[in-house]
């Protein structure tokens, strides 16, 4: 690359690099430092060593509760959302009339999904006198206390997350369309039914995309904030008090930014560990093109 071009390239990436340094790298490093301090936002951080981590991991009952709620939320949300997204993608992969319209329509909730307005709408739909209970009572069933019963509240938020399946669905759809059609034809000639084709041809060939979606959805689920903050504010009985809410409350309501940073780093460690486990296990179930096993 010539000298001029080299500088031109640097000029192009400079805005991104500046943003990355100031708005991601610096806060990232700063939060790590702050996690070892007692910092109330208004005075100078006071170094306390591992005290925040020690308290967090040994004496903080709220953290224990919040962590177990978060893990349960991730465990429910990720498989449900991926399964649903894959199911819709398979259906939308058929040659139907007005298929593009359907594809767009199913993607729309993802565009709206993370917004405050949709969270508020969700609150009304699942309220005691909301649309869902109206439907249940019209079928002669008992209304459900979706938000007031600690057993149901987290599941209701899980449904909101699953409703935003569009982006995962689009990626699945692209993967399904890239599967070599001749494999399907060969399998059909050999007498395979639809389930066999899906189970032994489609599914193995889209495992890289399943793996990608699994990682992305897991990370996003661990970071969920809007839904529980707006719909239930973490209640009742902290049954929807996900870790990001706890971090927020500690940082901006209790003015304990050092402790909040420590929670954030523990959350980071959990996500990182699960991601590494996923990568390690992927050797056993993800098949790439050119892979000796394929």
């Amino acid at each position: 690359m010539g000298g001029d071009n080299r500088f031109l390239g640097l000029a192009y990436v400079t805005p991104y690099l500046v943003g990355l340094l100031f708005f991601t790298a610096f806060p990232f490093a700063a939060s790590f430092y702050l996690s070892f301090t007692n910092y109330d936002l208004l005075s100078t951080p006071d170094w306390v060593g591992l005290r925040n981590y020690e308290k967090l991991l040994t004496r903080d009952r709220t953290f224990d509760k919040s962590l177990s709620v978060t893990l349960l939320y991730v465990a429910m949300t990720v498989p449900l959302k991926l399964g649903f997204a894959l199911l819709v993608a398979v259906i939308l992969n058929y040659r139907l009339r007005a298929i593009n319209l359907f594809r767009t329509a199913y993607y729309v909730p993802s565009i709206l999904g993370g917004s405050v307005a949709i969270a508020v709408l969700w609150r009304y739909i699942f309220a005691h006198n909301g649309l869902v209970n109206l439907g249940l009572t019209s079928l002669g069933l008992e209304p459900v206390n979706w938000f007031g019963d600690p057993q149901n509240a987290l599941f209701t938020l899980t449904l909101l997350r699953c409703w935003q399946f569009g982006s995962a669905m689009v990626i699945f759809l692209a993967a399904l369309q890239s599967v070599d059609k001749s494999l399907y034809e060969a399998a059909t000639i050999d007498g395979a039914n639809r389930w066999h084709v899906f189970r032994y041809i489609t599914l193995p060939l889209i495992t890289p995309v399943i793996f990608f979606n699994l990682i992305m959805q897991t990370v996003q689920a661990f970071q969920e904030f809007n839904g529980p903050y707006i719909i239930t504010n973490g209640g009742p009985l902290k049954s929807t008090y996900l870790l990001p809410l706890y971090i927020y409350d500690k940082a901006f309501k209790s003015f304990d930014m050092g402790y909040a940073s420590a929670i954030a780093w523990v959350l980071f460690a959990i996500i990182m560990t699960l991601t590494l486990i996923a990568f390690w296990s992927s050797k056993k179930w993800v098949y790439y093109a050119g892979d000796r096993r394929s």
């Binding site: 609150r123 699942f126 309220a127 005691h128 006198n129 206390n145 979706w146 938000f147 007031g148 019963d149 707006i230 719909i231 239930t232 504010n233 209640g235 009742p236």
Partner: peptide, 17 residues
């Protein structure tokens, strides 16, 4: 009772029907 009151989700009193 609190379980009934919480059925509306995180909503202010003056916004409740």
């Amino acid at each position: 009772d609190r379980e009934t009151a919480n059925a509306a989700g995180n909503v202010r009193l003056y916004e409740k029907p």
